[in-house]
Design a protein around this nucleic acid. Structure first.
Length: 435
DNA sequence: AAGAGCGACAACCGCAACTAC
DNA sequence: TGTAGTTGCGGTTGTCGCTCT
């Protein structure tokens, strides 16, 4: 059913959307919600099919979209997720708040594939091109499974606690040099083993404290299962340790008790769907040598996120260094309260710059021109969203997570009250890469 | 200045899964 | 249980703008 039945009943417009059409659709959904998409074009006065309206909303008009160029961190995350998930763009997009599957797909096809090939990596298998050639020579096509298939097997094996996964050669991942990567493209190539040793094993420049991201763990599982089997223990500076005989649920438990909150949702949802951690105590710390200026929670040369970034429940906002337990369902918008942006907290480049925190928008200067036109142009904005113009969504060039509610005849945008799991994911991505 | 080539992005198409009846 | 309608996803194509010749 490629085209809806409604599309055949009348001559419908195709192709690019005009600003007038966008306004109609935006006004309608803002007021009424989309409901049944097939009825949207008729009710909104559009000569489009419902499917087209849905796509336009999801990929362009949705207020929570983050537009602009992808950051290096986002690109690396996409590459890593693609290695695990394959062309499951919607699942990859789910790990990148504000990004659409279409956007990521386009990025992959137009840019990332090329970059990987230039680095000598096959974008389909995430293996070295030379290895791919060897594999093709050695294996008949029917047995030369894609990485996606292999990964699916691995994920199934995790769930089933199967102890005999198929062996697989080491992949190659792009790894950002965390000491020099901000604002640069000095991504280096390492084998997967090196990649995870770097992240988890404490053998690299990451010195005494280690941060990791949900994608790290996903990839780590893949790597470990593919290469060594599922029962490999993992120890990260004594803080992240899975029992060698842990079953899936036990690993979740171990993991929940040791991982920063920022990493929980993604891992639990993408690998362990049933795991729903609700209360965690973040314990991420950073070595003092280059993290000495991260904000009010800086205690004895160690940035304590419990007191700076995560003290969003009002109970510990005075900058003290005592521990704070973080509820995933906070009462206020984390980024609003802490003036955080979707972006990269830049650690100080030199001692001279201390002490303050640099926060960059992931979008950089690349404003969402089209969307901002809607927000700031009375003609396009229409009456339905006028209420929100008194509090510009893009006041800092960054759109917070927003939603909308309909209250009688008026509709207002509002910041989501709960601390979204996606927020935490984004933090994990951001800080995991950066710090 | 013109147009070919290319990249980035938007949108369409077809399929599968889901849901309601 | 079968069918029609709907939604979501991924592959593909179309369009636009920029650069180069």
């Amino acid at each position: 059913m490629g085209r809806h039945s409604c599309c055949y009943k009348q001559k419908l417009r195709k192709g690019l959307w005009s600003p007038e059409e966008d306004e109609k659709l935006l006004n309608y959904i803002t007021k009424q919600g989309h409901g049944c998409w097939s009825s949207v074009p008729k009710l909104a006065g559009l000569q489009r099919c419902g499917k087209s309206c849905r796509l336009r909303w999801i990929n362009y008009l949705r207020p929570d979209l983050k537009r602009g160029a992808f950051s290096q961190q986002e690109e690396n995350l996409i590459i890593e997720l693609h290695a695990v998930l394959g062309n499951r763009w919607s699942q990859i997009a789910a790990q990148l708040p504000g990004r659409t599957d279409n956007e990521i797909k386009n990025l992959w096809n137009s840019c990332l594939k090329k970059k990987l090939r230039q680095r000598g990596i096959d974008p389909n298998t995430h293996k070295r091109l030379s290895e791919v050639e060897i594999d093709k020579e050695k294996l008949p096509p029917a047995t030369n499974k894609s990485n996606i298939e292999k990964t699916s097997e691995v994920l199934n094996l995790i769930e089933a606690s199967n102890s005999n996964p198929p062996p697989m050669a080491a992949d190659q991942y792009p790894v950002v040099d965390v000491n020099n990567s901000i604002g640069s493209n000095n991504t280096t190539l390492k084998t997967t083993q090196e990649f995870f040793l770097d992240r988890f094993g404490g053998t690299s420049h990451e010195s005494s404290s280690t941060s990791c991201r949900p994608s790290d763990l996903v990839g780590y599982f893949s790597f470990q299962h593919l290469n060594y089997g599922p029962d490999i223990g993992l120890s990260v500076n004594s803080s992240l340790c899975f029992n060698q005989n842990s079953r899936c649920s036990e690993m979740i438990s171990d993991y929940n008790s040791s991982m920063p909150s920022t990493m929980l949702h993604s891992v639990s949802s993408s690998i362990f769907p049933s795991a729903t951690p609700t209360r965690v105590k973040p314990s991420v710390s950073f070595p003092s040598n280059n993290r000495s200026s991260m904000g009010s929670g800086d205690v004895n040369g160690v940035q304590n996120w419990e007191t700076s970034a995560f003290s969003n429940n009002g109970s510990n906002s005075n900058g003290s260094s005592s521990s704070t337990t973080i509820e995933l369902q906070g009462n206020s918008n984390f980024f609003e309260n802490h003036a955080f942006a979707w972006g990269v907290a830049d650690h100080v480049k030199s001692d001279k710059e201390a002490p303050h925190v640099h926060v960059h928008s992931l979008d950089g200067d690349a404003e969402d021109i089209k969307w901002s036109e809607y927000l700031h142009t009375p003609f396009l904005l229409g009456t339905a969203v006028q209420n929100q113009t008194s509090q510009p969504i893009c006041s800092h060039g960054i759109k917070p997570e927003t939603g909308f509610t309909t209250d009688g005849s008026t509709t207002t945008w509002h910041h989501q009250q709960a601390l979204q799991a996606s927020d935490l994911q984004q933090l994990a991505v951001t800080f995991g890469q950066t710090l």
